[in-house]
Design a protein around this nucleic acid. Structure first.
Lengths: 160, 160
DNA sequence: GTAGAAATACTCGGATAGGGCGTGTCCGAGTCCAGTGGG
DNA sequence: CCCACTGGACTCGGACACGCCCTATCCGAGTATTTCTAC
């Protein structure tokens, strides 16, 4: 079970957009340069953010991407859901009904499968932990480790 | 991010082994029949359980698989780790060091990446929730929905 | 000099190939059981 | 009658194809800018 690396890219790009603090939209090319990523593929991830309402895109010349709302209102859950999709990692195929379970009364299958219930419980804990962390929290953590980071990034982009 | 369906198979097979309550080891063929699964592929999942120490295998004629310990001592975390492997779903590739981050002092990268930290926090919550649920709990849930399940299963296997 | 329109350059958006991992299958090594022949 | 041996059948274990999703890429639709021309 491996998570798409697009999640990492999306989270970092949101932070980067905030640190750059530009009024005009930022193009995929410039964002990709900031992490040495392949621009066309990064574009695909950014489109997912737009569809999820996390970012907005303006087409045409001088176009690009902008954050739809401040980092305080974007959770890690939003990022993961935007890239990975809303469906659960564990998908119950109801094998309990097959084979030896065929003779059980229909009432036995009214509730959710107990294995599925256990997995869902854990997955809800995961989602809850993701939803409790905003990108603003993540930004604070990064700036605690490197307070001059915003200035360094703006300086770097002034030359690129 | 989709979890392997082998996890579902493994969990149900452990429950089935317990409900069957046989002294002799149970062969892959009989277990597969209980859920209408392809025997060779199920065998592969069972081997993973053996490697993880959850089940024991006895080769040769009249051989098969047995639970290595009671369900009370097998957690959902054990099952997932046995099938999916121990590595985390989110793997940090340290893109913060590339591009605009190249000019940051080395001290900025001593700690873990803040995005990675946030993801790890959620993943630990997931693992904790999995570790807190034993297969005995799952069995209790299933028997609450269908108290006659153990008898039905044993009766079915008596005829197969 | 100014306004309008066309040409241009640039960017997003979706449609299109390639690679890695999960899914599914097969055959060989090892073991137990049963039958048989000899003592 | 008992025991040892041999043949056979059965089961685990690892090695081998297939298919799908993630990764990576490209080209077309659309828009702001710029430039040129006409008034």
């Amino acid at each position: 079970m491996r998570m798409s690396e697009g999640v990492e890219w999306a989270a970092h790009c949101c932070l980067l957009l905030d640190w750059m603090g530009e009024d005009r939209p930022v193009s995929t090319t410039r964002l990709a340069a900031g992490f040495e990523l392949p621009p066309p593929y990064l574009n695909k991830q950014l489109q997912a953010l737009v569809k999820a309402g996390i970012a907005t895109s303006t087409p045409g010349a001088r176009g690009g991407f902008r954050l739809a709302r401040p980092l305080e209102k974007i959770t890690m859950m939003d990022i993961v859901a935007a890239i990975e999709g809303p469906e659960d990692a564990f998908q119950c195929t109801e094998i309990r009904r097959r084979g030896a379970g065929t003779e059980s009364p229909a009432s036995a299958f009214e509730g959710r499968c107990s294995v599925s219930t256990a997995m869902r419980k854990a997955e809800l804990a995961w989602r809850k932990a993701l939803a409790e962390q905003t990108l603003a929290d993540v930004r604070a953590g990064a700036e605690r480790a490197s307070p001059r980071l915003p200035q360094l990034i703006r300086a770097w982009y002034a030359r690129h």
